[in-house]
Design a protein around this nucleic acid. Sequence first.
RNA 1: GCGGAAGUGGCGGAACGGCAGACGCGCUAGCCUCAGGAGCUAGUUGGAGCAAUCCAGUCGGGGUUCAAAUCCCCGCUUCCGCACCA
Length: 871
Amino acid sequence: MADYKPQQLDRKWQKHWRSTNAFEVEADPSRPKFYCLEMFAYPSGHAHVGHVRNYIIGDICARMKRMRGYNVLHPFGWDAFGLPAENAAIKTGTHPETSTLDNIAHMKGQLQRLGISYAWGREIATCLPEYYKFNQWIFLKMLERGLAYRRRSSVNWCPSCQTVLANEQVVEGACWRCGSPVVMRDLEQWFFRITAYAEELLKDLDTLAAWPEKVVVMQRNWIGRSEGARLTFPVAGASETSVRGAGAPGLDIAIFTTRIDTIYGATFVLLAPEHAMVDRFAAESPDPVAFRARVQQFRALDRGARLTGAIEKEGFDTGRKAVNPFTGKEVPIWVANFVLAEYGTGAIMAVPAHDQRDYEFARKYGLPIKIVVVPRSAASAIEAERGVGVPAKPDRGEGAPGVEISEATSDYGRLVDSAEYSGQEAPGVITRMIADAEKRGIGTGEVQWRLKDWGISRQRYWGTPIPVVYCDKDGVQGVPYDQLPVELPKIATFSGRGDSPLAQVPEFVNTQCPTCGGPARRETDTMDTFVDSSWYFLRFTDPGNSVLPFDPKAAAYWMPVDFYSGGVEHAILHLLYSRFFTRVLRDVGLVTWAEPFTRLLTQGMVLKNGDVMSKSKGNVVDPDDMLQKYGADALRLYVMFVAPPEKEVEWSDAGLEGSFRFLFRVWRIVDHWAAAVGGSSGPASGTFNDGERALRRKTHDTIRRATVDIEERMHLNTAVSSLMELVNQIYAFSETTPLGPPTRAVQPSARIERPETVVVMREAIDALVVMISPFAPHTAEELWEMLGHKGGLTRAAWPAFDAEVAKAEEVVVPVQVNGKVRARLTVPAGLSDDQLCERALADPAVQVHTAGKTIRKVLVAKGPLVSIVAG
RNA sequence: GCGGAAGUGGCGGAACGGCAGACGCGCUAGCCUCAGGAGCUAGUUGGAGCAAUCCAGUCGGGGUUCAAAUCCCCGCUUCCGCACCA
């Protein structure tokens, strides 16, 4: 027997694939395309089996589709900018470029040793000017279209290191390096106006039928559309005219609410500590110093406390009043720490009876609570109680009905104590109240989004320079296209001090104004690395283009990505930004559709000792160790067999060994039969005996199952198990032939008398080797060669399923009596329902259970299966 | 709190309303072997029985159906996401 030395096969076939450019492709409109993509990698240095699982999943898909006749694009690249490399540079002095390129080289080797079938000719790395030039190009397009803009925004600042910190550098409110408390600092920053696409991004989620429901829901929540009304609460006493809603500018408080139907219960107004009106009230207050001190307390406290969990709701009275535009009554204005400045208008009307947060706040400070909605279910009970006329408690103040409530009820229902709206019900009354507010000029219907514009400025070195210059005379200007890329200058030392590292490079900062030629300064911030990953899948369609991000024709052929797989941690940001970018590029005219990823798979993580693998936990399984022991194929097969791709799995050495044993089992049986079945060809025909027909049935049934499991259901684990079943049956069949089992040496006298046996065995073994090749490509290629096939496996034809052959001649039909299986009839296939019923009722085991009972019903269900109801 | 997913042998997991536990790991017995942590064969949900077979059984409780792991309702548990979004 030929030795099975998987490590040698790995080397042999990987070399072969490389030297023949086996996986490089060109667009070919005459052939159907398939774009298979795994999320590209951050080059951290070492891939562990958790990362690698994803690449294997994609590879099974890519290899299978190639054999199914598709022109398969399966590229890989590197998400190569980012903070870790810069952090390392600060610590060790190694330049990010050096460490990044080293890491890429190492990880690329790892993936090649796994035999992943990438078109390496299309490899990209986002840290190279050829790539990030087009980040800048897209930025300029956005700038032209008003989709990129500047505004002040706060960043984390470490006063001790004198530097800006990214969110991931802030650990529990403190600097990652020195542990000092982080403060907020306002800087001018660049934003992408993703909110301009909010409506479309939300609506089109409905078209993503082949995305996991979970991801769609997460995106929907993240976008967070809510319908409501923007209403004006004039500040009392500031201007007499404002009471009628024609208020002097700056003296109205705008609020957003989704519950205008509760407005008669709005007994106070709350402002976010950051609300513009707060500063004004402070200035006008009797004691501005004390006022500002309290505000400052909230502004400072907020951020740190929010990380650790729920903060106690606190606030204080501004001493000012606003007029509820519906009741016409004055209500107090408070500042509250839980009101968010960045959502809605930064101010709310508080309805303590119908909002739990407002309720807690009202209770704490003794503010009035007024019930204005009676939920349908509780209506009669509460009305009965109200009827007794329990006096209002002092802390509920004027207008509070005599109903004791212990929590807010936010259910919809019938309005009470709401002037002319009393007795009406949501949702109708909401529409009417908004219409009335619009008529009176005190408000308008409005849609609010939880999604905010995307701040892309990073005060970092290792990223794409933002292609903008500032001229004292001509203002903010995009760098002209013909001056791209704005290259990242080499920096020798990384101090980790200062706001933006690039600001410390005068040769970079000082430039000329593209308009007047006078002195100008460059933007020194770099882009968020999510920009890089928001369009890389398009770059793969035309990675060498130096004029455009990609040729629209290339994208038109290859896109959209047919199968995209990666970690669920990118369910929101990366995927949402990619959908946003694709729409922008559509509006720019480079592509013609909006959704970049047709089918999405979020693969589960690989755990070790019940925990996510990580260097710090010391539980990393290095694929290279496994390759050395068992070869790439056993690892690939195991990772696919252990569970469905979406599920997380616990790593098991024993399981890996089992997969190795299976491959060895395949190797032995193919080797055992290679001489007998190899070399010859032709369709399977002849007069087959029972055993031969059974094997053919199994072969074709396996073809059907494996094809569906891989291509449609992505149940790679069951695809493998069906192949295992086929192998088991091939072994069993082999035992019945003169050649015997592969464990026994073949007798010199052994000869296969029946040509049909050879034909059937060849059909089974050929199909097996082809179908196992996506999982175990090295072993399969070697066996394929051993069987005398020429031309390699990567583009061999996937076996064709023949329904006639797979059809069973005899079927086992279970018979249920009152829902329990009492007999199994072995009958020829194709009996009529009546014949089946007749035989079922005649069966002795059935008669035992129907004896003495009346047969009430007999039916034949698909399967087939006979169901008898007796009683 | 809101939203999502899931609960099946000792373990990983199968089963597009129709034979629960495919396939594998582990374990048990036998064969082969100088030996085996190799290979082969058989067994392996629990309980009763020499056995044929019978009873129970897919988190718990109801329901729909000739038929439910699967569909519906209530509850429990676990995991994940969002988390004061007005």
